[in-house]
Nucleic acid binder design. Structure first.
Lengths: 226, 226
DNA sequence: CAACACCCTTAGGCCAGCCTAAATCACGGA
DNA sequence: TCCGTGATTTAGGCTGGCCTAAGGGTGTTG
């Protein structure tokens, strides 16, 4: 029944859908039509239609009105795209002078065009890195991914000093703002105050104090400073 | 009338058509529907249809039953693609360990996906080379191209020693064969014999003798050895 | 338990790009 | 000059992927 799609016959669109669904729920919780539509900047009916096609091809399961979940095959395809995307970002930053706020758009296009061979050569040139410039873990070629446990900045108690491990954000303007505060993977941050509501956190980084809101705070993943 | 297509809204297909037409006739001689169809591996009616759209957008002129010629705008777009293609080939060979018989397919996909910024960074990383790994000249960013005059190997008289400047071929099998004879840009070749028909040429290269037929002979562009 | 709001899907349409089959043109040879 | 051959275009159709408008579920709330 399911035609042989295994041999890299996924279209650009299909790759984008799979990656989006994975990103909405790496753990496999069902993703809703509207979430997908919002992330891909498409209308909801378009998503319903594509989702139907993808489920016929065995890449995901769709329970009408309930959401979609990737199948094992769909998850593999999605992780392949994530690997590509993050390796491309790392390569562009390392070898072609890109900054972390500009790589995303370029990688978004390249991830569909590059061969597996080229991806592996880029990985080798980089020394097979474990994370990309934002600190996001790069899935292995075999489809495994090692998510490093981390707490959002919003969860760190007053007085604690942590290291930023990951800045999970792709919008250039936000990234530029984050960078302007001196925040990037590897940097140490101390939480000096917290507001009772809205998860406002005051941090000290590089001798400066800044207040971070809920949205930004969730994007900044931290680990205990060594 | 002609909608504003200037701002990089050309589709993959359109880019391929323009490049194909340019390659069929860099000098601007009209290219026929069937030549284009053959080069792009499409049916003739498909080409007629696309050609009609492209001429409406001012990228080429189509005289029905007579052929098509790129307009200045079309030529610029085509040269942009050629520049991209050749720079990508050069980059892949220089930095990612590709051989000249494998770069073509990869470049064919990448040329549509890469930004102008990235192309210029690749060019800079390469030191703004004038030619690609096959010896084909790389058009400048401003759209100028410096074709180096050369004679096909089939035209070299007996006894003359020349240097191969250019191997104008993209098929991997043919390139591998050519390489297996020790032929590549920069190599010196002496014509030791010629057959009266079929442009057969016997050459000596690296102490070995080989007979080259018409097709291959035309692909090998030579210049007087210094 | 009914009603409403919200989300999701169905219906119907459009465009780019491709195809095959059927007309039509152009040109060389009788 | 006429005709046939081969190239080209027209006609008509398909698929992927998107859209808007309209209909149908679901679940929360009075």
């Amino acid at each position: 029944m399911s035609p042989i799609l295994q041999s890299e016959t996924l279209t650009r669109s299909v790759e984008d859908y799979l990656k989006a669904i994975y990103q909405l729920s790496p753990e496999g919780r069902p993703a809703s039509t509207s979430e997908i539509a919002h992330l891909l900047a498409l209308s909801a009916p378009s998503v319903t239609g594509m989702v139907k096609r993808l489920s016929e091809h065995g890449l995901l399961e769709h329970i009408p009105y309930r959401g979609v979940q990737l199948t094992e095959e769909g998850r593999r395809a999605a992780l392949r795209m994530v690997r590509r995307h993050r390796l491309i970002e790392a390569y562009l930053v390392e070898f072609l002078g890109y900054s972390w706020d500009t790589v995303h758009a370029e990688a978004e296009r390249l991830e569909h065009a590059v061969s597996d061979t080229m991806i592996e050569r880029m990985a080798a040139a980089l020394g097979n890195p474990a994370v990309d410039p934002h600190g996001d873990p790069i899935p292995e070629a075999d489809g495994s991914i090692h998510e490093l446990a981390g707490r959002a900045l919003t969860e760190i108690p007053i007085g604690e000093t942590v290291e930023i491990h990951r800045v999970h954000e792709s919008q250039p303007e936000r990234l530029r703002y984050i960078a302007s505060l001196g925040l990037r993977p590897g940097v140490r941050v101390t939480v000096v105050d917290r507001q009772p509501f809205d998860d406002l956190v005051t941090i000290e980084v590089g001798g400066m104090r800044h207040v971070i809101g809920r949205e930004l705070g969730r994007v900044l993943q931290c680990a205990p400073a060594e």
